[in-house]
Design a protein around this nucleic acid. Structure first.
Length: 268
DNA sequence: CATCAACCTGATCA
DNA sequence: ATGATCAGGTTGA
């Protein structure tokens, strides 16, 4: 399969997709998008801009070439690629990506989705059942409503981010022109962004496919599968060298694999 | 550079 | 039932 909606939209890289029966519903920009899996891809309802969807799914990537590259490098990831054929890295909007991953720090998936859903409902536009992700200006204008969103200490970071972007103190397009290393270094200066979020934004928001985000789950997997442990920097170096220019794809497969039911050489 | 408690909130577990 | 711990981390000392 070329593109799997279940794996791509269900692996946790994007937080606003909902599976209803056999279709996936999400919001991209100001449109509610409905996707239905086909044999080799998907059908799309809700937009006339097909190019936008193809870009979001990175459909022009030579996916077999990418799979083959990481397959060669590691036999365990190779089995995961076989198992989860069609998993893709998405190319998300940079603002939405930074914002959602700042909100996602130190929270579980369920809570992340709840926080983001609340933020959209309080500050975004009603599209009819679903809400747009608010612009930085909308966040600032409706900042008082964020008190209802249960964001905890993330609220101030979120508002500060919106302000800095709105005033052009942070220029998302300029960051998009940087190399992976420069991109990470720039993102790290933003309050609320540490190494993990910087890697997530580099990968999902700016398309640096060699970024390898390391969260608690990946940390456990790196220990369980490869016997590696250490600081973020050490694990990052090991993973990026091992998996190469498409390390981000390898990370997605590792993340999606279920450590609890797999056979590992080390105990978790 | 490495270490570590504190941090909002909510769910799970003992 | 009530307290500890953990969850897609980051901050500041």
């Amino acid at each position: 399969m070329n593109i799997s909606l279940d794996y791509t939209l269900g692996c946790g890289q994007a937080h606003r997709w909902i599976k209803r029966d056999d279709t996936w519903e999400g919001v991209i920009g100001n449109e509610i998008i409905t996707l239905t899996q086909t044999d080799n891809g998907f059908e799309c309802d809700g937009t006339s801009n097909e190019n936008m969807i193809l870009n979001y799914f990175r459909a022009k990537d030579n996916i077999q070439n990418i799979y083959n590259d990481i397959r060669r490098r590691d036999s365990y990831v190779s089995t995961l690629i076989h198992k989860y054929q069609g998993m893709r890295i998405l190319k998300q909007d940079s603002w939405e990506c930074i914002a959602t991953y700042i909100l996602a720090t130190n929270a579980n998936i369920k809570r992340i989705r709840q926080m983001i859903g609340m933020v959209c409902k309080e500050c975004g536009e009603d599209l009819g059942g679903r809400y747009s992700f608010p612009t930085p200006e909308e966040v600032i204008m409706k900042a008082d409503r964020l008190s209802n969103c249960r964001l905890g200490y993330r609220r101030q970071r979120f508002i500060e981010l919106a302000k800095r972007i709105s005033t052009n103190d942070i220029d998302l397009n300029t960051i998009g022109k940087l190399s992976y290393e420069e991109c990470v270094q720039t993102l790290l200066k933003i309050k609320g962004i540490g190494p993990k979020v910087a890697d997530c934004v580099s990968l999902f928001g700016y398309g640096h496919l060699d970024a390898f985000p390391i969260d608690t789950r990946i940390t456990k997997i790196l220990w369980a599968v490869y016997g590696k442990h250490g600081s973020y920097k050490q694990l990052s170096k090991f993973s990026r060298e091992k998996f190469g220019k498409y390390a981000g794809y390898a990370q997605e497969f590792l993340y999606y694999s279920n450590p609890a039911t797999s056979t590992f050489s080390h105990k978790i």
